[in-house]
Amino acid sequence: MTREKTVFITGASSGIGAATAKAAVAAGWNVGLMARSADKLDSLVQELGEASLAVAGDATDLGAQESAIARVASHFGGIDAAFANAGMGVDTPGTEAGDPREWRRMIDLNIMALLYTARVALPELRKTKGQLVLTGSVAGKLHILGSIYGATKWFVHGYAGNMAQEMREWGGRCTLIAPGMVDTPFFSEPKPDKLQPEDIANAVIFALSQPERASISEITVMPTG
């Protein structure tokens, strides 16, 4: 199989990120994988083979993302897509009862880390007229009783639209993926009757597989149940 394109993925060690890495390799892509868990990344690379490169690091660290992008671009000869997927929720919801320390960690990951991915990837994506993919959420489309997590995803949705406008000027594309509830480690209890990570991975690959003339601005994926 000829591999001509490379996608960089944050939050790649489990859940949607790992499923997308597997789907991308199956579709003929190279994958650069970033997450904090070096052991999980190494196991994933053993499964995926030479089409994958693991770069362990914290996505909330701008320098770590700069180094990761540089390594992936050097290793595979460029980057054609970046998937800003890393994210988290909170254990204690609400404003009055919530934990401000959790808010800070969530905002750093859901917003700042996503901005860092865009910042470090854009110079490479300009070279390839590439694509930026962002993990939003249905929680970023609805008003949910005081949800601070949902508010971070509203930011992602607004930013995705803004980036689509900016990237269009030089032939790039930005796609927002908005899942409903997905059975991933994001939740403390399994959700077997909800979406599976592979469902979201399929949506990402669909967006990445479109011809240059077609831009998929948003894909919302909901469980049927």
Rank of each mutant, 00 (worst) to 15 (best):
M167F: 05
L132T: 11
L109Q: 04
A164C: 07
L125A: 07
R126Q: 05
G140T: 09
G89K: 03
V120N: 02
T135R: 08
G77P: 09
H143K: 12
M163A: 15
D108T: 04
R119S: 13
D91A: 05
I144G: 03
M163D: 13
W154F: 10
P93A: 09
Y116Q: 09
G150S: 10
F83Y: 15
H143I: 15
K129E: 02
N110R: 03
G140I: 10
N162W: 13
A82S: 12
W154L: 10
L145M: 14
S147C: 06
A160V: 13
R105F: 03
A164R: 11
G161Y: 01
P100Y: 02
R126E: 00
L134I: 15
M112K: 10
T152V: 07
L115V: 15
S137V: 10
F83H: 12
E124N: 10
T128N: 00
G94C: 13
G161I: 12
L125F: 04
L134V: 14
I144V: 12
E124G: 05
Q165E: 15
H75W: 05
W154R: 10
V138T: 14
L114G: 11
K127E: 01
V156Q: 02
F155R: 09
F155H: 11
Y149Q: 04
G130Y: 03
W103Q: 02
R119K: 14
F83S: 12
A84F: 01
M112P: 01
K127R: 01
G136Q: 05
T95F: 11
L109G: 02
V120F: 01
H157M: 14
G78E: 06
G98T: 08
G130D: 01
H75I: 12
E96M: 10
K129C: 00
V90C: 00
I111P: 02
M106R: 03
N162A: 15
A97P: 09
